[in-house]
């Protein structure tokens, strides 16, 4: 499964200063910045209407746990979307990819915990499984250097 741009080539090396601040990317993004961006984007998308003009129903009868799980799943999809976006930018760096990998790793752990509380027949589990597996694969591809 490949969501990366095959034409992407890492062009910039880390500077000495960046090496002393591994939490920040060349564009000043930290792990928290990326998480925040992913969840802000998600909130904005939910507030508005979908491209086909549908609005989200206010109450689907979901439990608090299901809502948290959906929210975490959407946040993780936002991170994957952010990752896909990095490949279209010339200034994407190894540290930006590493920040995404850290954020994905964090979200995978949270998704696993949230899934434990869901009913074994809850269809949400399958959706979260798919998000988890994609995230896990992308995290491994980043950390083993497939994209650099």
């Amino acid at each position: 499964m490949k969501i990366y741009n095959p034409h992407f080539i890492q062009q910039k090396e880390q500077t000495g200063q960046e090496k002393t601040e591994p939490q920040k990317t060349q564009r000043g993004e930290s792990f928290l910045d990326i998480l925040k961006a992913a969840s802000t984007k998600k909130s904005e998308e939910i507030k508005g209407t979908t491209p086909v003009g549908l609005t989200f129903p206010k109450d689907l009868g979901l439990t608090a746990l299901q809502k948290s799980a959906i929210s975490k799943g959407e946040e993780t999809l936002g991170l994957l979307n952010h990752l896909a976006g990095l490949f279209t930018k010339e200034d994407s760096s190894k540290s930006a990819l590493d920040s995404i990998a850290n954020a994905l790793s964090h979200n995978i752990d949270e998704l696993k915990e949230l899934k434990k509380g869901l009913d074994s027949n809850d269809p949400l589990r399958n959706t979260l499984d798919e998000i988890e597996i994609i995230s896990m694969v992308e995290k491994i591809k980043i950390t083993r250097g497939d994209y650099t």
Binding site: M1, N126, D129, E130, I133, I134, V137
Partner: peptide
Amino acid sequence: IAMPYVSGIGIIS
């Protein structure tokens, strides 16, 4: 396990 559209995890489930 890692495949497009539906993963192997989905198939096993």
